[in-house]
Every structure is written in structure tokens, then in C-alpha cells.
């Protein structure tokens, strides 16, 4: 399979996947959740990965996040082949280069908001006071400064996800991996979260987002759809207009979008 549809940028590739396969099960039960994925992702892209359940989206994300290292094929992250990395080095890369955002937020319930956000810095070896200050500053960016000492269960879903995003960003990662970040949120909160992500993208972060919700692809700069462990389509979305006043309210689609979507669904 050839590398298809990269954004025409001069940015260096952050992620290069060549014939990536991930096998589950043995013998008769063997099947490939990822079955030959070739992708090149450049710095500063906002990628939405779409596809039906079980097509390997989350598996791909886990592989990209170095949580799953039992793979075939090559995965180069910042030019380094990850198969050469040991578990300690992989942990270090997760700590320094990758930020995770989950559908179910995954804050540690025992720790307060501030400590949750500071958690990634802990594993970077930053002293407590320094990391709490950094976490506090990050929460300020998300307008959560007043919620610093709340426990996660005291926050609304949208707030919790914003805390989770703050946590993902606090160690200044080069890639943000988001697994259905709005899956557990209502449309209003979803909108806010997507605005945040879009804002991050504007500031030069690379974001890879898995989603079921086709509406959210409007925020992305590139949409990859997957099917049966393979990349089905890979299209550059038209560059989202950054003029927020022009944004359509969620739920209303233009005719062209509707047509395009209908076409896609027929496929």
C-alpha cells in the first residue's frame, strides 16, 4: 500500500507507519485488528480517525501511544523506530512526547484536579511545588483555576474532560492522542472541548483523534477512515475556517456536507 494523502506541508513527519499489523489471538482465532496500515503524519496536523466499531481505530491509537508494543511492521516516531525501544524508554516517550485524552476522562479519583493535572510531570521527575505550579498555570488556560482543589467527581463531564486535556498538555507533548474525547459528553460540552482541541491545533500541536461522530471531523485538517484494520479513505478536509463567528451551530449541516456524508455512508 502506498502512502496516501499527506498534507502538503514542509513539516517533518512525526509519525510514519509502514505496513503496520497488530494481531490478536492465535491459530483459528487469529485476526488482524490492524492489517497493513501505512500512514505518514506530519507535525501540526489535526487528524480525525473514523470508522465503524471494531475497525481498529483504538488499537491504532494505542499503538501510536506506545501502550501496545506487540506489533508487526515499522512505526517510526520522530524518526526513531519504536521497536528498538525498551519499556523504560517507551515510558519516557509517553511521559515527554505524548498526551492522552480518553473518552472516560480517566482522572485518578483519589487525587484532586490539580494533582491529576500534575501527574505526568511526576514521572518527569519535576519537584512537587514546581509541578503543581505548572499544573495550576495549565488549568488557568482552561478556565478551571477555581476548580483546582475539587475532586474529579465534583466536576461536570465537560469540566472533567477539560481537566483531562490540561493533563495531556501539561508536559508539553508533541502529539496529542484523543480517543473519542467527546463520547461521554452532551453536544454543548462537546462543542467546548472541540473548540479547545481546535485551539490547540492552531497553536501548532499535532492531534490525532478517534471519533464516531462525523460532525467532529469538521474540526480536523485530515480525516482518515478505517475499515477492517485497513485505511479506507484518507482525505484532507478543507481547512477549517478559523473565523469562529462563521461557525455553524452544531447539528446544522450544509447541503454539501450532507451530500458528502450520504455518499460516504453508501460506501
Amino acid at each position: 500500500m502506498t502512502i496516501i494523502g499527506t498534507m502538503a506541508t514542509n513539516n517533518p513527519p512525526v509519525i510514519v507507519l509502514k505496513d503496520l499489523r497488530k494481531r490478536f489471538g492465535i491459530g483459528d482465532a487469529e485476526h488482524y485488528a490492524l492489517d497493513g496500515v501505512d500512514v505518514r503524519i506530519d507535525k501540526g496536523e489535526f487528524i480525525a480517525i473514523m470508522g465503524p466499531s471494531g475497525c481498529g481505530k483504538t488499537t491504532l491509537l494505542n499503538v501510536l501511544g506506545l501502550l501496545d508494543s506487540d506489533i508487526e511492521g515499522t512505526y517510526k516516531l520522530d524518526g526513531i523506530d519504536v521497536s528498538t525501544l525498551g519499556s523504560i524508554k517507551r515510558a519516557r516517550i509517553r511521559s515527554r512526547q505524548i498526551g492522552f485524552i480518553f473518552q472516560s476522562f480517566n482522572l485518578i479519583p483519589r487525587l484532586n484536579v490539580l494533582e491529576n493535572v500534575a501527574l505526568p510531570l511526576t514521572y518527569k521527575g519535576i519537584p512537587r511545588l514546581k509541578r503543581l505550579k505548572a499544573a495550576s498555570a495549565m488549568l488557568g488556560n482552561f478556565h478551571l483555576a477555581e476548580r483546582e482543589y475539587y475532586m474529579p467527581h465534583q466536576l461536570s463531564g465537560g469540566q472533567t474532560q477539560r481537566v483531562a486535556i490540561a493533563r495531556a498538555l501539561v508536559n508539553d507533548p508533541s502529539i496529542i492522542l484523543a480517543d473519542e474525547p467527546t463520547g461521554n459528553l452532551d453536544s454543548r460540552s462537546s462543542h467546548i472541548i472541540m473548540e479547545e482541541l481546535s485551539d490547540l491545533h492552531q497553536r501548532g500541536n499535532t492531534i490525532i483523534m478517534v471519533t464516531h461522530n462525523p460532525r467532529l471531523t469538521t474540526y480536523a485538517s485530515r480525516v482518515i477512515t478505517m475499515l477492517d484494520g485497513k485505511i479506507d479513505t484518507d482525505t484532507d478536509a478543507k481547512k477549517p475556517k478559523k473565523d469562529t463567528t462563521k461557525k455553524r451551530p452544531l447539528g446544522k449541516k450544509s447541503k454539501t456536507t450532507k451530500k458528502r456524508r450520504a455518499k460516504k455512508e453508501k460506501k
Binding site: G65, L67, S87, I88, A91, R92, R94, S95, R96, F100, N106, L107, I108, R110, L119, P120, Y123, K124, R167, N171
Partner: peptide
């Protein structure tokens, strides 16, 4: 279990 997963995802090594 989940806390362990979170900690690993944000950069904790097995040793940690």
C-alpha cells in the same frame, strides 16, 4: 487497575 493504566499512559515506567 485503572489508576495503574492512567499512570502508565502518562509516563510511568514499570519500575515506577
Amino acid at each position: 487497575k485503572r489508576e495503574i493504566g492512567i499512570r502508565k499512559a502518562v509516563g510511568a515506567s514499570n519500575g515506577d
